[in-house]
Structure formats: structure tokens, C-alpha cells
Design a protein around this nucleic acid. Sequence first.
DNA 1: ATGTTC
Length: 476
Amino acid sequence: MDLSRFTKRGEFAWEVAPREAMHVPAIVYADEALMHAMDEKVYTQVTNVAKLPGIVKACYAMPDAHWGYGFPIGGVAAFDPARDGVVSAGGVGFDISCGVRCLHTGLHKEDLEANQKRLVDTLFERIPCGVGRTGPMRLRRKELDAMLSGGAEWAVSCGYGTRVDLERIEERGCMRGARAEEVSAQAKDRQCEQMGTLGSGNHYLEVQHVAKVFDYETGSVFGLSPGDIVVSIHCGSRALGHQIGTDFLKKMLAASAEYGIKLPDRELACAPIESPLGQSYLGAMRAGINCALANRQIITYLTRQVFADVLPKANLTLLYDVSHNTCKEEVHVVDGKRMPLYVHRKGATRALGPGHPDLPAAFHPVGQPVLIGGTMGTASYVLVGTMESAALSFSSACHGAGRAMSRHQAVRHWRGREVLDELATRGILVRSPSMRALAEEAPLAYKDVSAVVDAADRAGLARKVAKLEPVVCIKG
DNA sequence: ATGTTC
């Protein structure tokens, strides 16, 4: 990316002052090396979003930002409903409420040694993954609607976990204000057999060990010590979220003209928050959030069954479950005034600081666990939310490594079998229904997740707590 | 991300 258009604001923040139709500045958080390597499209997209009606304060890009549909992936933007602020389907993304859930196992690295192969094979056998795979249940319309209203709370009421799990899920497992009736029949039909499935692309289930702890005090509050075994699940709302995105993009494109919104890019199609279409999308999108929360809860249930068979000593309890593709109503301070805003986070993790009322009591002294998914060959990180991120990024941080190479390029560079074998020599056992998917997801097709996390840490978006390294990975 | 292109 050409840096000459940015003004440096400290070592890790780069600002574009409002120009042309921009209402607010655009700010990218990254170090100089990540800035140089960053997709040129991030500049175009982050400055385009700054032109949308009702945007407040600034449009942000996280250190892992790259080219997305309309908004960059790694983008954060907040809109004021009282000043014609908008909601955008492309600002949430197609995989509504894609997120990461991390589970303690109570096991230590040595406990795995004799069972690693059996564990990966059993997980692969029992956890449906890959394009179009169906899950362990088929929901009738009424049950599906209950799921869309209830999220993980619904899943627990069906026996997929306990109420203790809900405490450690964003929104306590249920996004309020969901409107199942705003979700199309097509979206529901596509989803009815997909609950409890991982999906494809960068989605995965990994068994990881805590390779390093940077902050022992917070690590102890999070229950993370060196050598501990954890399970991380990265997936979202499957076909349902994708269909909601497709349905509403079409409606928003037609409506943008009707509402007199001048779009800098058709992909930024949106509707005023206070309009019937804006409210309809928010209701459907919240139903999509509940679908993702329920999905991760059911996958957790399946994972617990696998551990009960393979490593019965294990006890899987939630550290936390947090999304990185949402639009949520939150109160933030802008120009010294507290106001309700609609915060879009697309490939950006909510990262609440210490004492925030939306956090469970256990996290009040330190802040929210911020779960950063890596690639199958590298590392994942657990960060903790800071007080200063409220002013820096509407309490948001990065979400992963971010792609450095397109899927198409990756397939030309590597063969899936090579990737699999190379990882196996490093002690990482991977299973996937698709060799092509493994080539697409080759670790080197991603940016260096450690550099991304360091930049987020140094910028003050969130602080490093622990580094997780994979042992076993199920990839869609 | 996605019944990997209505």
C-alpha cells in the first residue's frame, strides 16, 4: 500500500484526513511493515466507508485488514441512528457472526501423546465439515425459528450443554431483538440440516496447547498455563448467514437509490438504521448471530462426546465465545457524549476492557478474552480487551492472520498433500475432506499472525495474554 | 464465507 497519503499518528496508527465526500477520517492500525504489505484495496475501501451517511468519529482498519466485499475484512465503523446513520449487509459480511470459541480441557500436553491420532480421527469422523455437509439433526420450521430467536440458549434447552456454558458466551448466548420472520424461507431451507457443522474455507476445529504465556496474571484469570490443552472452534452461521447477506444486499441496493444515498461503491449498499428495511435487516442479522451461537454450541456438544470417548479424563469448559462479523447497538462516547451507535465489525473482534457491564463477573478485573484464530500451521492467540480501545476502535481488535495470497494463487503454489505431510512432520495432525482446501489454507498463504497480534498489542487495541499452537486440526 | 456461479 502507498503510504504517502497517510499521516502517521504514533508508531501504529495511520490516518487519512477527510477528503472529497469523506465525513470522518480513516485510520489504519498497523506497523510500517504490515502497512507496506497491505492490500491497496484497504485504502479505497476504508475511505469509501467514511463517505457513508451518519458515520461517526472515524472508519478503522485492523492490522489484519485485507480486501473484502464493500468493507475491508478487518474493518470497524459506527453509525448514529439519529443522524441518518446506516446499516450495511456488506459491513457485516456473508458469514454473519463467524467467531471463535475456546474451551479448556483440563488436560496437559503429555495427556495427549498416546492418543493424538485417535483424537484427530474421531473428531474428523464425528464433526461434520466441508462444503454442503449436513449435521446430526434436521430442524422443522418451528424448531428452526426457536433456534433463530434463542441462539446457544436454545441449544442448551435442547440438551446441547449446560447453563454454565452460557455465561461465557457473548450476549450470554442469546442475541436479543432477533426476528426469525425477517429471514427468508430459502435461508431457512438451506440451514435446516446444517446445525452442528463446521463449514469450509478458513473454518476449523483445533486442539491446541498453550505454547507461551505473556501475562501470567490475566492468564490465571483466563485459566491458561503453559502446556494446557485447549480446543478452539472457528465457524459461523453457515448457509443461513450467507443467504441473509445475499437477500439483503439485493434489497439494500434497490433501497439505497430510493433513500437518496449516494454510494461510493455498489458493494456498500445500505439502508438507514431507522428505516423499515434497516430494521428488517437488523432483525434477520441478529437471527443469524443466534444461528452461529447455536451452531458453535452444538459443535461443542459433539466435541465433548469425542473427548469422553477418547480422553475421558477431560472436562471441556468454556473460556469464551466471541464473534468477529456483526453489527451491534452499543453505547460509546463521541465528542464527550455517550450515545447509542450501530457498530459494524467485519473481521474484527469485539474487545471490551476491564469492568465493562456486558462481561461476566469473572472477567471484570481484567477485560474480555479476545480470541484470535491463526492458520493451521502457525499459532492462535488469546488477548485481553483494554480500556483505551474504547477510544481507539469502539472496543475492537484484529481477528486473525488475514490472507496474504488469494485462494487461487495458493492452489497454484502448493498441493494439499504436501501441506498435510509437512504439518505432520511438525507433529500437527490435520484431517480435511478436501485436499484442495488444504492447499488454499496453506499457512504461508496468510500474513504472519504474530506480527498482526504484536501490532494490535502495541497499538493498544488489546494486550497479548497467551500463544496457542495446534496439535490436531479438523479443516472444512 | 457459500448448495465454491442464478
